[in-house]
């Protein structure tokens, strides 16, 4: 019976994981497409790979591979300036995420649930921070904060410097838009008849929100929060413009270090930031997919 099987079947089956490249004709079109994909990934991820690899090199300029070491990570953790900036960054990211998630969610609920005057206007303005150049946003926030600080000086006579507060407000300003986008998407999929069913079963509006609406859109809210956190962690321009003395954030600190010299320590801290960002983005995707 075994002999009765067609002879070419095992060969075909073995080749099936390698899609069609070695079965059938290898045309120029197919070859150039494959090459294109390969180069695209190389340009996208090559530099990142180099960065990660050279964070482990012994070479003190971090540009040649001279053997494996964790020394730069050790130095990085011992560097008070860097660690201080990392702490600042986490603090700013945490506070701005909490605030922007609450406001962004409320905004999304208002936009999806209510018809009010000026709704279309608000709708258009919400996404402005997403589309306008970050530098424009940074300059406007700087000018605005200067104005407010000057106003406080004139009124109270006290000189107020830019501080964590200004940076946090700046981060909140752009994060709200992103949170709103993500939460609105999950509200769009939400079946409002579930809320009617809850009302019908004796729940008031408050109970309906906390027992039905909130658990259902929670993945969207968490996704938005993780996105806001990631965006705050690696924000550079707004952080640079709005931070005051003693509130320097990690991306700004890294930039200052790079201006003097590229050391493997920079590679190490960048690799760490990369790892944190990727983890958060993956987490936010997982959270949103879970239903």
């Amino acid at each position: 019976m075994i002999e009765a099987q067609p002879q070419n079947q095992p060969a075909r089956r073995a080749a099936s994981w390698w899609p069609r490249l070695n079965s059938g004709a290898l045309t120029w079109g197919r070859l150039s497409l494959t090459l294109h994909a390969f180069l695209m990934y190389l340009f996208l991820y090559g530099p990142i790979l180099v960065l990660v690899v050279f964070s482990f090199t012994r070479d003190e300029f971090g540009v040649r591979w001279t053997g494996f070491t964790l020394e730069w990570y050790v130095r990085m953790f011992a560097n008070d300036r860097l660690m201080g900036a990392a702490g600042n960054t986490l603090y700013v990211a945490f506070v701005s995420t909490v605030v922007s998630t609450i406001f962004g969610t409320l905004l999304a609920l208002a936009m999806e649930r209510h018809r009010f005057r000026g709704r279309t206007g608000v709708d258009a303005v919400i996404y402005l921070p997403v589309v306008i150049p970050e530098i424009a946003m940074a300059v406007s926030l700087l000018a605005f904060s200067a104005l407010v600080l000057e106003f406080i000086r004139v009124v109270t006579g006290e000189v107020v410097r830019r501080s964590f507060l200004t940076v946090i407000i700046g981060h909140i300003a752009f994060s709200i838009s992103f949170v709103t986008i993500v939460v609105r998407a999950s509200l769009k999929h939400f079946d409002r008849r579930l809320e009617e069913a809850a009302r019908d079963l004796g729940a008031n509006s408050w109970q309906t929100f906390w027992r039905i609406t909130f658990p259902m859109i929670l993945p969207g809210i968490l996704g938005g929060a993780l996105l806001a956190f990631t965006l705050s962690l690696d924000n550079f321009i707004i952080s640079l413009f709005l931070s005051g003395p003693g509130t320097s954030l990690l991306p700004v600190e890294v930039y200052n270090k790079v201006r003097r010299a590229i050391t493997p320590e920079i590679n190490a801290i960048s690799t760490l930031m990369l790892a944190v960002s990727i983890t958060l983005v993956v987490l936010s995707q997982l959270v949103q997919r879970r239903r």
Binding site: D191, L194, E196, A197, A198, D200, L201, M216
Partner: peptide, 13 residues
């Protein structure tokens, strides 16, 4: 009164 909805509207969570 209570309602049985066309789409059932059961709470999925």
């Amino acid at each position: 009164v209570n309602t049985v909805f066309q789409s059932y509207a059961l709470f999925p969570h």
